[in-house]
């Protein structure tokens, strides 16, 4: 128990992201409403984004914007700046998640127009399965 607790405290950030991801995952597979499923997917994406950003952090590292003149003269110390690569990847991932949400909402509007409901079982009933 003592060991488990120290394990949680040492990596509490990953534990939080895994819990967040579980919430999103449950919403995606357990809920019957299509909008709730979509919200679950968004929570899932948020967990992934936070996870990546936390991978890039360094203790005592500054923001990845450096003093240009000092950098030109002496170069930059890589341990003093947080890893900018996850930030770049997540910057694009956020915009992709926005566009995915947009397309999904458009399809949901179309589904609602055709079947007058967003509940999964009712749609399946109307399709005739």
């Amino acid at each position: 128990m003592e060991q488990l607790l120290s394990e949680i405290v040492a990596k509490y950030n990953y534990w939080i992201y895994v819990v967040l991801m579980m919430i999103g995952f449950y919403a995606m597979i357990g809920k019957r409403n299509l909008v709730k499923k979509l919200l679950g997917m968004n929570i899932f994406q948020t967990a992934i984004i936070l996870f990546y950003v936390s991978i890039g952090s360094k203790r005592g590292g500054g923001i990845p914007i450096v003093d240009k003149h000092a950098a030109m003269l002496h170069g930059v110390d890589a341990t003093g700046v947080v890893n900018p690569l996850p930030h770049v990847l997540m910057l694009t991932a956020i915009v992709v998640s926005v566009s995915v949400t947009g397309v999904a909402l458009a399809i949901l509007i179309r589904i609602y127009r055709k079947y007058d409901t967003l509940e999964e079982d009712e749609i399946l009933e109307k399709i005739g399965r």
Binding site: Y12, R59, T79
Partner: peptide, 11 residues
Amino acid sequence: AAWGDAASPAS
């Protein structure tokens, strides 16, 4: 790797 580890594989 632990949080904020400068020697983590990603960095």
